[in-house]
């Protein structure tokens, strides 16, 4: 108890309350940004989405044949890092498999099995 008190005392000298406050807000911000970045990773920036919506409205049956120039324009809107002719595989290939005979690795998922610790596993969902 005494050690805790002393630590607190030292911290408060440095303005501990302020520190913890900005740390908290920072943490919250980082978390929210992470979720936003995941959304952004999937759906892209909001502006590109608008572009897509416009495209959908413009296109019609008559546009089956369109001038070459326009075609290029449409192409440039696509993200360049994505291969438009990528093979259609739903099966996911893990690049490298870890060695599951390794003790530490075994322990890391021990509680995902009914033979593991149930109380620890129930914490996971929260």
């Amino acid at each position: 108890l005494s050690s805790d008190d002393s630590e607190e005392a030292i911290d408060s000298d440095d303005g501990a309350e302020n520190t913890s406050k900005w740390k908290k807000s920072l943490l919250a911000r980082t978390l929210s940004r992470r979720s936003a970045s995941l959304m952004q990773l999937v759906y892209g920036k909001p502006s590109t989405e608008l572009d897509n919506a416009n495209n959908g409205e413009d296109s019609s049956d008559e546009e089956f044949f369109i001038p070459k120039g326009q075609k290029k324009q449409a192409k440039s809107e696509l993200p360049s890092f994505d291969d438009i002719d990528a093979e259609d595989y739903s099966k996911f290939f893990k690049v490298e498999l870890r060695d599951w005979s390794d003790g530490d690795l075994v322990e890391s998922i021990r509680d995902r099995f009914v033979t593991g610790d149930w109380s620890k596993a129930s914490l996971r969902g929260r």
């Binding site: 959908g56 409205e57 296109s59 049956d61 546009e63 449409a74 438009i84 990528a86 093979e87």
Partner: peptide, 9 residues
Amino acid sequence: KTRRLSGSR
């Protein structure tokens, strides 16, 4: 409305 797509992916 026809949707225009490109590539085989």
